[in-house]
Amino acid sequence: MTEEITMKKIDTFAEHGDDGATNETHIEAKDFSLFYGDFEAVRKVSMEIPKQKVTAMIGPSGCGKSTLLRSINRMNDLIPSTSATGEMIFDGHNIYNKNIDVVTLRARVGMVFQKPNVFPKSIFDNVAYGPRLQGTKNKQELSEIVEQSLRNAAIWDEVKDRLTANALGMSGGQQQRLCIARALAIKPEILLMDEPTSALDPKATAKIEDLIGELRNNYTIIIVTHNMQQAARVSDLTAFMYEGVLVEFGKTKQLFTNPDNPQTENYITGRFG
C-alpha cells in the first residue's frame, strides 16, 4: 500500500523541486572526517548544502549519516574521545575552530531527535525553554513566541487548551511535533532532523512529513532517514552515504530515477541495506 502512495509522491516531487529558491550554500563540508577514537565514522566528506531546501541523507545503518548530521551542531562533542578533521563551514566559519561559541551555534542550528524527547515539564515550558535561555523573560512576548512556534509546527489547535499540562501526557506524534515547535522557538536557520519519524506510526509520520513540506520555505532542513520513500517524498536533494563515505549527492529526482553510482542504485533498488 505504501508503495502505491510512494510512487505517486515520487511522481510529484518535481513540484517543489527546482523552483525559484536561491541556490546559496548554507553549510559546506570540506574533506570533513569524524573519528570515534580510532574509528573514522565519517570519511572525508565534501558537500554543499543549499539554503532553504530539504536535504535528505540516506544509507544503511552505521553508514555515518547520523554522525554527519550531529557534526553540524557539534552534538558529537558529548561523546568522549571524538575528534574531527577537515572543515565544516557555516556562516563563513569552520565550526570546529577553537573560538566558536558552541552555544550560539546550537541556537542557530536546531535539532529534532529520533525519539521525541520532550522535557517532563508543561507544554508551554517546553517551547519556552529556548527563548528563555536567550533571555526572553517577558510573559507576553513568550506566549507569542510559543503560540507562533506551535502554529508553525501545526500542533497549536491540538494543544492550545492545555498548555500547562505535562508534555509527557501527549501522544508520540504530538510529542515529536512539540519537539519541532521547541526547536523552531529558538528561531534557527537550519533544522536538523535525525530520523524524526522512526518512533511514530504511519499517521503521525504523515503529519510530520506534511509539516516538513511547510517548513521548507523558511528553513534549511537536513533530514536523516531510514526510509527511502520518505526521502523521496520530502526532500529536494538526497545524499547517499555508505561506510562513512558520501557516495552520491544530488537532486532527489535524479538520484532516485537515474543514479550515477551503481552502489546507489543497488541500495535504492533494495539489493542491500
Binding site: R106, R108, A183
Partner: peptide, 14 residues
C-alpha cells in the same frame, strides 16, 4: 534519559 540532555544542548543551552 540522555535524550533530555541532548534536547537541551540542541536548543543551545550551556
Amino acid at each position: 534519559p540522555r535524550a533530555y540532555k541532548e534536547a537541551a544542548l540542541g536548543l543551545g543551552a550551556g
